[in-house]
Computed example of a mutant assay.
Amino acid sequence: MATPGEALTSSSYIEHHLQHLSLAKLGVVAEGSFWNVHIDSLFFSVLTGVLFLWVFRSVAKKATTGVPSRLQCAVEMVVEFVGENVKDTFHGRNPLIAPLALTIFVWIILMNLMDLVPIDFLPYPAELVGIPYLKVVPTADVSITMSMALGVFALMIYYSIKVKGIGGFAKELALHPFNHPLMIPFNLLLETVSLLAKPISLGMRLFGNMFAGEVVFILCAAMLPWYLQWVGSLPWAIFHILVILIQAFVFMMLTIVYLSMAHEDSDH
């Protein structure tokens, strides 16, 4: 990793690496505008998504019943792992759930793995060609993680209404946990808060863990000379691999659980 030059102090180096390449930074929209977009987060999230689709499609096209390649074995292990978790957790019948869970699991792993790229490995050459800011970890951007969580939330609402009907969904909110007309206002308040907390916790958990990991790498690069940065970065990277995998697994499992709950009929 490159060292912060003499013109940059440790604090300014950290602040610089926490900035996104956004439309506001390019002067396209005003700072704080609703239309501001983090270009770097969108680019790397799309890039990792395309990589996932290309690899899995290529393996599927070249799959053989004979001696499989190492890549085919790895893909089959991931697919089987996700399939077993869906089978054990999801109690409805919906052909969308397994592909959705697989996509979420692998996509988040790939986005999280960007955190292992040395801090200055991509931003430094980008700056040489005129790109002033570049954050390469999409899941360290709350707009990306909350967008994914809101997508899961939309599916929860859609399948809740589709399976239970509008009346059944309304009864689930109004008559749970206390099945009495006088408790309807309290039930609505409690269930609405509980419902809204699901996507918030889903997105913020992933963002918080990945942002914290990114900050540790930035601190190692800012506070240590270049020849000693590995002393802090290497042990943290080894530990962070567990965080990368666990966070992808947790997001996938909670998605399956929430959609399974959406497919369950109300029992009031």
Results as ranks from 00 to 15, higher is better:
L96M: 07
S194V: 04
L175K: 03
M148Q: 12
L21D: 04
M156W: 04
L150A: 11
L188C: 03
M261P: 08
E127K: 08
A140K: 02
N85I: 11
V37K: 01
V215S: 01
M148E: 13
F249V: 11
P132K: 10
Q247C: 10
R93C: 12
L134D: 05
T3F: 08
H91Q: 13
E80N: 13
V29L: 05
G83T: 05
G27S: 13
L202S: 11
S260A: 13
A149P: 09
H263E: 15
E172G: 15
H240N: 10
L219C: 08
G203S: 06
M77G: 13
S260G: 15
V137M: 00
M77P: 01
A7Q: 09
Q247I: 02
G213S: 11
I97K: 06
F121E: 05
G232Y: 00
L116V: 06
F251R: 02
K135M: 12
Y158K: 03
V216Y: 08
T9G: 15
L42G: 11
M114S: 06
L128S: 03
S12P: 08
L100V: 06
T103G: 02
L206T: 09
I161P: 01
E80C: 13
G168K: 05
A212P: 09
F217R: 02
S201C: 06
C220W: 00
V243T: 14
Q19G: 09
M114E: 07
F169I: 05
Y13L: 08
V67H: 10
E191R: 08
G208C: 04
Y133N: 08
G83N: 14
V75G: 07
P138V: 07
E6Y: 03
I246Q: 08
V250Y: 02
G165C: 10
P132T: 12
A197N: 01
A222K: 00
A2P: 14
G27D: 14
V243Y: 04
Y124E: 13
V50W: 12
A98H: 08
G49W: 08
I157V: 15
W226V: 15
L96R: 03
A222D: 01
P235K: 08
V193N: 04
L190K: 07
T192M: 07
L21H: 04
F239M: 13
L8P: 05
A140S: 15
H180F: 13
P68L: 15
A60V: 07
Y158C: 06
A126I: 06
E127L: 12
F90Q: 02
V231H: 03
L42R: 12
N187R: 01
G92L: 15
F217C: 05
I14N: 03
E127P: 02
A170C: 00
E264N: 05
K198S: 09
N85P: 06
A237E: 08
F34P: 03
M148C: 15
L113Y: 04
C73G: 11
V29Y: 00
S58F: 11
L195T: 13
Q229W: 00
V129R: 01
V117H: 02
A154G: 02
F169S: 11
L196R: 06
H38L: 07
I200F: 11
E31C: 05
Y133G: 04
I108E: 10
H16E: 09
K164C: 10
